[in-house]
Amino acid sequence: MNIFRFLGDLSHLTSILILIHKIQTSRSCRGISYKTQLLYVIVFVSRYLDLVWTYVSLYNSLMKLFFISSSSYILYLIKIRFRPTLDPSIDTFSLPYLIIPAAILSLIFNYADEKAWLSEVLWSFSIYLESVAILPQLFLLQRTGEAETITTHYLFALGAYRALYIPNWIYRYATESFVDPIAIISGLIQTALYADFFYIYFTKVIRGQKFELPA
């Protein structure tokens, strides 16, 4: 564990707490993509099911439990508790376009061997799906053209988590020759998806202006 990975994980955890706080205090899931949140549940369940048969550390297990339970709770908040505030007409990104390619890629590029096939395919599927899971949310943002500040803080913390994993990989390569090509390539793509968002966040939201996309 190095500082980059730890801060990245903390940032990820914070982003989820911000999202729950936003939904509960505003009693609304306005501006939040249900589809992105559904994808995160699929990502966490398919990746962290290994919780049952793999033990890395207490930290690792607790985080996995947190990500599975909190993402499921968010889905409950959106789909049941505050369902009337959901506007499906702007959350229109088609999920099969993301899920099917991720599934195909995971069948081709994975770390499966004769001992572990399903768990390895599920793991790479979750990595590929995570790298694009934010797209319905960014698409929704693009459609509405603006966002509540709290939503942009959520997105920033989520993007920062991905960005912090990059120095983590560089550090791990330098200190332990650790290289995980599937995670690294997917992670770089995922971080790149945030580039536009980061630009507007730094030039507007940080200076106290409203998050608005250029017309």
């Binding site: 990820h12 793999t54 690792n60 061997d113 995670a183």
Partner: peptide, 10 residues
């Protein structure tokens, strides 16, 4: 050298 992939990251 290629060794078994360790999944200790989240």
């Amino acid at each position: 050298e290629q060794h078994k992939h360790v999944k200790d990251e989240l």
